[in-house]
Computed example of a mutant assay.
Amino acid sequence: MAVRTPRTRRPVPVHRRVWARLTRSPAFRTLGPFVPVVALWWILAESGLFPPAFFVGPDVVAAEFVEMVRKGVLPGYLSDSLERLVYGVGFGLLIGLPMGFLTAMSLRVRRALWPILLFFQAIADIAWLPIVIVWFGFSLTAVTFVIVYTIMFPLMLSVVSGVEQVPRELVRAARSLGAGRTRVFFEVVVPGALPSIATGIRTGLGYGWRALVAAEIIVGTSGIGFMMFDARRVGDVSQVFLGMIVLGVLWYMLDALILAPFEKATVERWGMVRSLEEGDR
Rank of each mutant, 00 (worst) to 15 (best):
R9E: 13
P13R: 15
V14H: 04
W19H: 03
W19I: 03
L22R: 03
L22I: 04
T23G: 00
R24V: 12
R24I: 10
A27C: 03
A27E: 03
F28G: 00
R29M: 04
T30V: 08
T30Y: 15
G32V: 04
P33E: 00
V35R: 04
P36R: 00
A39W: 04
L40M: 08
I43Q: 09
L44H: 09
S47C: 04
G48H: 06
L49A: 11
F50H: 07
P52I: 00
V61R: 06
A62M: 11
V66L: 06
K71D: 13
L82W: 02
R84P: 02
V86C: 14
V89C: 04
V89S: 12
L93Y: 04
L93H: 12
V109M: 13
A112K: 09
W114M: 14
P115C: 13
L117H: 07
L118R: 14
A122L: 10
A124Q: 07
D125M: 09
D125H: 05
I126Q: 12
A127Y: 09
I131C: 01
V132K: 07
V134P: 00
V134D: 02
F138L: 15
T141S: 14
A142P: 00
A142V: 02
Y149F: 13
I151M: 14
M152A: 13
F153Q: 03
M156H: 07
M156K: 09
V166F: 05
E169M: 06
V171G: 12
V171P: 15
V171N: 15
A173K: 07
R175Q: 14
T182V: 11
F185I: 02
F186P: 00
V188R: 08
V188L: 02
A193T: 06
A193I: 05
L194Q: 08
A198Y: 09
T199C: 05
T199M: 10
G200T: 06
G200F: 09
G206F: 13
Y207A: 06
Y207V: 10
R210E: 06
A211E: 09
A211V: 06
V219L: 10
S222D: 10
G225R: 10
G225I: 11
M228V: 12
M228S: 13
V237R: 08
V237F: 09
L242S: 10
V246F: 01
V249P: 12
L250G: 12
W251H: 06
W251Q: 05
Y252P: 08
M253Y: 15
L257S: 07
F262E: 02
K264M: 08
A265T: 11
A265G: 03
V267I: 10
L276R: 03
G279Y: 01
